[in-house]
Design a protein around this nucleic acid. Structure first.
Length: 507
RNA sequence: GGCGCUAUGGUGCAACGGUUAGCACGUAGCCCUUUCAAGGCUAAAAUACGGGUUCGAUUCCCGUUAGCGCUACCA
């Protein structure tokens, strides 16, 4: 019997960005929470573009938002819907409010209420108490004769007195006094020969959320004070409001609202910097939400499974980039190697270093390097890499013979005058090694150092710079194995040739 | 100014009346070590303040302070 009751209506949520800017981390987090919730509940995710402000709208930004969501892995089942294409819906709803007395025509000039009314005493009403007060009631609400030639806007007639309540899954029951809510605009006045203009935010949201049968409105906490207006609208339109869940805001290091001056706020910048999407998701999910315990490294599948609105915090969170970087290095190290390989492949393709022979199932390249080699090489590098592009920059010598030697590394490890001779002898010894493995390289190298009477470290460090061009790289003998005998010997000789007199380099 | 929300180390979270207030990032030190990471260990570091309620408050209530949000014919 409870089965029927338990089989509640399917969850339907939406992410509704406005194309007035790129997809910022706050928006991305909101999108992520909606998505985690939908996926965890077997619900539906809807994408809606709220582009009703023709003035600020930049259509070209939509693609960037879509790209950002795609990179984030946030997909949707319905949409994207564009509010600019649903104008009739909003006009009809506004007219319905007009006819049932929930709204009125307002002939006031837009500037009358624009910006900072509270700075001046309102004339429309008797000032209560001391100090400036803002206008919440428009005098047109009681029916004013239409002014010829002036096109009216439609405003919602907020009830006098009383309160409006709603339930918020993270903040609990909320109640607002109606007297604090202004007679907000539903529909802009018409321009040219149109009767009315575009919908305003409140109307569009409610009409669409009704039309799309949204069950849970998960959005930023900056919308809390908009909610009572929307609840009023739902009722005026004859509908019950959905469940709201306002999530705390993301702040910059100085606790002010996150903005450009705090560094990258565009999600796409994190993609180009080379963060792993899953690491970014993990980090974002923990900003304002917690599964309840101490676990932090939570893969997306588990995030979906664990996510709940009850776990959402009510306090704003500071975006901590060092922690994001830590998450990224964690994923770089802990991801099953095959998953990481595809990310590295993408990166190497981007930088032009990729060879198809390294792909899974492909035949080895002329040097015998195949997918297994690629896997081993990436595995060797992964604990030292911080961002994906590192595979193409300081790790370049592992994937290409076209690399340069870092001057600082040479300065540091090639200072000793014995280096050229040491490297030359090592090259000769290594060239003759019958076996090419870690131990063989190890013994041969130490023998050369010992014979020359120098510390192994001197030779080892100098060799590292010679064969990979960097002071910072994986352990030398593992590196040698992965590079191969031929490459190591050749690079050593090329390095020797760069000292003193020029011999023709054989590379 | 009004209304609202919030308040645990520098940061993100945990503890949902009873813990020596826990974990992680970051910071410092040590270990490991052929570089650099990774890893291991250790240390410093918090319940904003003041009142209540209670046998007992980080936890519940009130006030103060601070931060943030809203206060547009923006979303």
């Amino acid at each position: 019997m409870t089965e029927i009751i338990k089989k509640a209506a399917p969850v339907r949520v939406r992410f509704a960005p406005s194309p007035t800017g790129y997809l910022h981390v706050g928006g991305a987090r909101t999108a992520l929470f909606n998505w985690l919730f939908a996926r965890g509940q077997g619900g539906v995710m809807i994408l809606r573009i709220e582009d009703t402000d023709a003035e600020r709208n930049k259509p070209e930004l939509v693609q960037g938002i879509l790209d950002g969501l795609q990179w984030l892995g946030v997909d949707w089942n319905e949409g994207p819907f564009y509010q600019s294409q649903r104008t009739e819906l909003y006009r009809n709803a506004a007219k319905k409010c007009l006819s049932n007395g929930a709204a009125f025509l307002c002939y006031c000039p837009a500037e009358k209420y624009a910006g900072g009314d509270y700075a001046e005493p309102a004339q429309d009403e008797e000032p209560k108490g001391a100090g400036p007060r803002r206008i919440t009631r428009c005098s047109c609400r009681d029916g004013k004769p239409s002014t010829p030639g002036v096109k009216p806007a439609i405003r919602f007639k907020v009830p006098l007195g009383g309160t409006t309540k709603f339930f918020d899954a993270v903040f609990g029951e909320r109640e607002f006094s109606n007297d604090e809510i202004e007679d907000f605009v539903l529909l802009r006045s018409g321009k040219g020969d149109e009767e009315f203009g575009q919908s305003m935010y409140q109307l569009g949201v409610v009409v669409d959320d009704m039309d799309m049968r949204i069950t849970h409105v998960i959005r930023g906490a900056d919308h809390i004070s908009n909610t009572p207006k929307q609840v009023l609208l739902y009722r005026a339109l004859g509908a019950e409001p959905p469940i709201f869940a306002h999530v705390p805001l993301i702040l910059g290091a100085d606790k002010s609202r996150l903005s450009k001056r705090h560094g990258a706020t565009d999600v796409n910048m994190y993609r180009t910097e080379g963060f792993l999407a899953e690491a970014f998701r993990n980090f974002l999910a923990l900003l304002g939400w917690s599964p309840g315990g101490d676990e932090e490294f939570i893969r997306t599948q588990d995030l979906i499974q664990k996510f709940s609105l009850e776990g959402v915090s009510r306090t704003n969170a500071v975006f901590d980039r060092p922690k994001l970087e830590w998450f990224n290095t964690q994923y770089l190290q802990k991801l099953p190697i095959e998953e990481l390989l595809s990310e590295v492949e993408t990166e190497l393709k981007r930088s032009g270093l990729w060879k198809p022979e390294w792909g899974a199932g492909a035949a080895p390249d002329p040097d015998g390097r195949d997918h297994a080699w690629f896997s081993k090489t990436v595995d060797l590098l992964r604990s030292r890499v911080r961002l994906l592009p590192d595979f193409s920059t300081w790790s370049r010598a592992f994937f290409s013979d076209d690399f340069t030697r870092d001057p600082a590394a040479k300065e540091k490890f090639w200072k000793d005058t014995k280096v050229p001779e040491l490297l030359a002898r090592l090259a000769d010894v290594l060239d003759k090694l019958p076996e090419w493995n870690h131990d063989a390289c190890n013994h041969a190298s130490r023998a050369v150092a010992e014979a020359a009477g120098v510390k192994a470290g001197l030779l080892i460090n100098a060799t590292r710079v010679a064969i990979v061009g960097q002071a910072v790289a994986p352990p030398l003998f593992d590196t040698m194995v992965v590079l191969g005998q031929h490459r190591v010997v050749r690079r050593l000789r090329v390095a020797v040739a760069t000292f003193g007199k020029a011999q023709q380099a054989a590379e």
